[in-house]
């Protein structure tokens, strides 16, 4: 554990250096990101200029949801995109061999070795959104609901991560599979709004196939106490199970890679 924390520290340091080496890029990225946030808030205020609630959700709730969505989205940008890019390249040019020959868990290295650090800035924005959303909607939040919210948000992130692991592990079977994460990307934005606003078929997809709704809508529901204890436990169970499945799938993939690569 200590070793892995130490490794994450070194990964962060190296990636920070890389971000600084490309400082114009970093600066422009932060600017663009701010503009996106402005756009998101503008579109929400336009919606609420015309109506009081969206699928039963009030303005404050949607701001909280947007905050949660941005945290999940941040995970995508900090870790999943850069790691995918690096992983795909490394399988194609063979440098993945070196990852396997290091005495560290290969999935850990693949997940954390390439990070887009400046995106951490999003965390501040997201927390501001969540807190202001809570204060807009007013009313007291029960502490057990708040704990459920945190646990479900974490478990939701784990589910998205696990799905990603399975998708990139497919590369071990189909060497050329650069579009592995495109589907994740395509549906990601659906997490911006409560799942109830979508047509039924899309709700099914974003709940069961690419479970982005489980990572965004569900935690905010828990915050308002609209989930039963059983539901909360069930979602947490799904999170834990998907992680186990993903890790096993990765292992099988690595074994397949060692069996067939030349």
């Amino acid at each position: 554990m200590r070793r892995h924390l130490n490794l994450i520290r070194v990964f962060l340091k190296i990636n920070l250096q890389m971000a600084m080496a490309y400082r114009t890029d970093t600066f422009v990225n932060i600017l663009v990101n701010m503009m996106w946030l402005g756009w998101e808030l503008l579109s929400l205020s336009i919606i609420f200029g015309n109506t009081q609630a969206l699928a039963g959700w009030e303005f404050g709730d949607l701001i909280v949801l947007l905050g949660v969505f941005r945290i999940v989205n941040m995970l995508m940008f900090i870790m999943i995109w850069p790691a995918t890019e690096k992983f795909n390249t490394s399988v194609r040019d063979g440098s993945f061999d070196y990852v396997l020959l290091q005495p560290v868990n290969s999935l850990f290295v693949v997940s954390f070795s390439r990070l887009t650090i400046w995106r951490l800035w999003d965390l501040v924005l997201a927390l501001v959104l969540i807190l202001s959303g809570l204060s807009i909607s007013g009313g007291n939040i029960l502490w057990q609901n708040f704990m459920a919210f945190l646990a479900l948000a974490f478990s939701g992130i784990i589910i998205i991560y696990s799905l990603w692991v399975v998708l990139i592990a497919l590369t071990f079977w189909f060497t050329k599979f650069d579009n592995n994460v495109t589907i994740l990307h395509a549906l990601m934005d659906a997490g911006r709004y409560p799942v109830m606003v979508y047509p039924f078929w899309l709700q099914l997809i974003v709940t069961f196939i690419i479970p982005i709704a489980v990572a965004t809508t569900v935690p905010v529901q828990a915050l308002h106490g609209s989930l039963s204890v059983l539901q909360v436990l069930m979602y947490l169970g799904v999170g834990a199970a998907s992680f186990v499945v993903a890790v096993l799938f990765w292992r099988v993939g690595v074994r397949k890679y060692s069996g067939a690569s030349s």
Binding site: L7, V10, F11, I14, Q17, S95, Q102, P103, V104
Partner: peptide, 21 residues
């Protein structure tokens, strides 16, 4: 094949290996 990261000095990759090993 390349073990070293393209974008950073080798010295930084060495430090990474120090942590890994």
């Amino acid at each position: 094949r390349n073990r070293l990261s393209w974008d950073i000095p080798a010295a930084d990759s060495f430090l990474l290996n120090q942590a890994i090993y």
